[in-house]
Amino acid sequence: MPEVLVVDDSKVMRDMVVACLRPYPGLTFTHASSGLEAIERLSLQPYDLLVLDLNMPDIGGIEVVEFVRSQDRLRNLPIIIVTTRGDEASRARALAVGANRFMTKPFTPDAILAEARALLEEKRG
């Protein structure tokens, strides 16, 4: 059962992401409402996919990605960034620190589902 960690300080946004990914069979979802909580959860338990907002209190998505990639254990964890900050610089920065996909809000349910499917299947090998 692939475990997805959905990180966003907006509950509505987390619910939307979960609803979008729901059609993929067998996924289970964990919510984190802050970047700090995401890092805490990632340090305690393995996940198969991380869906991450950029703009959050205390520490943002970029710092979460940097943390994830600094950990041996998490080096291969697929990360989808979901953000309103659609500018090229943000995209380049997120991909440079190690995010796998970068999605700008608004996105369609199908678009994020397709990205998640590709990453999960790639990971399964």
Partner: peptide, 18 residues
């Protein structure tokens, strides 16, 4: 910063619901 974040979240959510 908090004001900025609140607006940023409003913007993102509003984009999702168009």
């Amino acid at each position: 910063r908090e004001l900025f974040r609140a607006l940023h979240t409003i913007k993102g959510l509003s984009a999702m619901v168009d």
